[in-house]
Write a protein that binds this DNA or RNA. Sequence first.
DNA 1: ATTTTCCCCTGCCGGC
DNA 2: TGCCGGCAGGGGAAAA
Length: 278
Amino acid sequence: MPELPEVETIRRQLDEAVTGETVLRVQVLDPLLVAPESPNRFRRSVEGRTVAGLGRRGKYLLVELDSGDTLAMHLRMTGRLHHTPSGRGPADAHRRARFTFGDGSTLDFSDTRRFGRAWIVPADHPDPEGYWRARVGVEPFDRAFTPQRLGALLAGRSAPVKASILAQRLVAGVGNIYADEALFQAGVHPARPAGSLDAAEVAALRDAIRDRLRAGIRSGGASIDRYRDTIGKAGTMQDMLRVHRHEGDPCPVCGTTVVKIRVAQRGTYLCPECQPTG
DNA sequence: ATTTTCCCCTGCCGGC
DNA sequence: TGCCGGCAGGGGAAAA
């Protein structure tokens, strides 16, 4: 579910809500959430620690603790984080963990499909930068995300360009929704071999990725199904999607019927007129 | 090395 | 109505 804009929305809200607060209690209701670490070990790393700040790498949410440890979380498909000032979180059969803070508020990690994970990147990790570099590539809003950089990442690849921008090790934070929307805006067919884009197409794609992700952040994320922010509110980006989940609808630019195909094992929406194969 | 396939989970939806 | 296959915004491991 959550891609960069959704995780960024959550990061900003949590930074506001829990930075400076001390975690009094950690309850792990589903050991799978912290596997392969033991719930007790996980709990001991977090209880008593104060939140120094909230970070993000791609779709990874990072809770920096005063111990120097990082509590890393990934929401995967259906994970949610719900913060409740009163401490009385909503009844939820899919709650996997609860963090209780010094101000009496609680943070619930709930996850229907149980793909989400939480784990500790320890303060004494020998190479934290390398740890993240192995998982996530360039941040779309980093100065380093230039057309030249994207071009270098795509050059020589035969895989579909959509698969390449979905690859987190290349570009961090783009998921299925924003990939479809960015490729549409750039006028690039998702199944085109990544290395076949010319410089103008690469530049258009880079601008489109930034533009669509920015729109997603501004609108509080896309709540197609499960996504909600930390106070349970839906975003509005779903109302601004132009092709994703719009199979059979007219293209907002040219009126041609939007089609759904399969690219990189993912449902993929596009306008065959605006995004020619050639 | 890169690319593709399979898998992890649960719920929902459409077709028969 | 009920069952079944397919699909879902994620990524990691294994296979090709």
